[in-house]
Simulated scan of single mutants.
Amino acid sequence: MQADIDRAITGMGIEVSIDIPAAPQEVWDYVADLASNVEWMADAQSIDFTSARTEGVGTTFECVTKIGPLKTTDKLEVTEWDPPNTLGITHRGAVTGTGRFALEPIEDGTRFTWSEDLTLPWYFGSRAGQQPASLVLERVWRKNLRNLRARMLERQQGPTGHEPGPLLGMGRDSEMRAYGPHIIRMSLRGRDLSHEAAAMRHVRAHGFPAPEVIEQPDNHSVVMARLTGPTMLDELAAKPWLLTRHVKGLARLHRLLGDVPAPGNWAKVSGGSSVVHLDLQPDNVKLTPDGPVVIDWSNAAAGDAAFDAASTYVRLRTAAPDNHAAARAVINAFRTRFARAFLKEFGADAILSHLRAAADLRLLDRNLHPNEREAVFALARGELD
């Protein structure tokens, strides 16, 4: 009876999706090659078929899966095969349950949805272990879907001379690729990047560390100097004992940016007339050999430095980074400590005076996860632990 209870309370459902600029048949041809799934699933280390067939209903295989320190061999069987629409599997190993890929045609390509209904092994714990495990798995699979989109784009286009080359990174609506000795950021949805390029040029002209803009081939792309070094978030993941140093460094960058006047034609998000970044947090600070460089200027506006710091505080308290698994684990454990240290270092009175307005601005982001949205509401009400 106890085993049945444990199985029930550790069961969970997860669903993630992404839009891919490729036809459903093209996406299907890639993901239905099950052996190639290790190319885009960061947690899948190897796939070995245990059946004579390698496609279609009845195909069985074993997948060695590793997330952080946890490693398991997942035994799977294909139970649904409807090209180019759905591919379903059943888990029969330490992890049990079902999974499904659904491919839906949309105007710009394919909406790829990955859903899982899983029962975890005992070492994830009972109900207390379900929520962190669910969050970690969801983050890993979101990263996997971004990898899948990147692979599809790589299959469509190869580098020639100074044409966009190998993929270096992906965001919600843009990608970063090699571009000769530089890098190029390109919008995947036709968004105008002219403001971002202008913001980087402007703050650099005032002595603030931002990427050097080399050229802007068109409104939807910008070429920048390549930066080397980890992000502040990456270094926190590898060396969490440097938390205090990075808190001080982040607060210093906020103050330095507060000395840069914003152009008069920029949108204002608060009182004040300095440049505000609105996403100046550890994942957007590159630690180069020449010092820290702040990246991702897509939201740059005019406002007050304390409002910008409050925006960072809201993100630190309510949103786990969407990058590396190790970094996520560190931030999940230390983000409250980091946020409170940042609050003290920058100035609690200054940040808290702008907290409600910064939270309101954060809630305008339509891409907020429901859990993050609720956390922002709780923070604004003073109810977040």
Results as ranks from 00 to 15, higher is better:
74 D>P: 01
77 E>P: 01
79 T>W: 03
80 E>Y: 00
81 W>K: 11
82 D>V: 08
82 D>Y: 00
83 P>C: 07
83 P>E: 06
83 P>N: 10
84 P>F: 10
84 P>W: 09
85 N>K: 13
86 T>Q: 11
86 T>F: 02
87 L>F: 15
92 R>D: 03
93 G>L: 04
96 T>A: 10
97 G>N: 04
97 G>Q: 03
98 T>Y: 06
99 G>P: 04
101 F>M: 13
102 A>H: 03
105 P>W: 10
107 E>V: 10
108 D>Y: 01
109 G>P: 08
111 R>K: 13
112 F>V: 15
115 S>A: 15
115 S>D: 09
115 S>H: 05
116 E>L: 14
118 L>W: 07
118 L>D: 08
122 W>A: 14
124 F>W: 07
124 F>A: 11
125 G>Y: 10
126 S>E: 13
127 R>P: 01
128 A>D: 13
129 G>F: 09
130 Q>F: 04
131 Q>M: 06
134 S>F: 04
135 L>D: 12
136 V>N: 07
138 E>L: 13
140 V>L: 05
142 R>E: 14
143 K>D: 05
143 K>Y: 14
144 N>K: 03
145 L>H: 01
146 R>N: 04
146 R>V: 01
146 R>I: 00
147 N>E: 09
148 L>G: 05
150 A>W: 06
151 R>M: 08
152 M>D: 02
155 R>V: 11
162 H>G: 12
162 H>Y: 11
163 E>I: 01
164 P>I: 06
164 P>C: 07
165 G>E: 08
167 L>F: 02
168 L>S: 09
170 M>T: 15
170 M>D: 04
170 M>P: 05
175 E>V: 09
175 E>R: 12
176 M>S: 10
177 R>A: 03
177 R>I: 08
178 A>V: 09
182 H>M: 12
182 H>Q: 13
183 I>D: 04
188 L>N: 08
192 D>K: 06
193 L>D: 05
193 L>E: 03
195 H>W: 07
195 H>I: 02
198 A>Q: 15
198 A>H: 13
199 A>E: 13
200 M>G: 09
201 R>N: 14
204 R>L: 12
204 R>P: 02
204 R>T: 13
205 A>P: 00
205 A>W: 02
207 G>F: 12
209 P>A: 11
212 E>W: 04
212 E>F: 06
215 E>L: 08
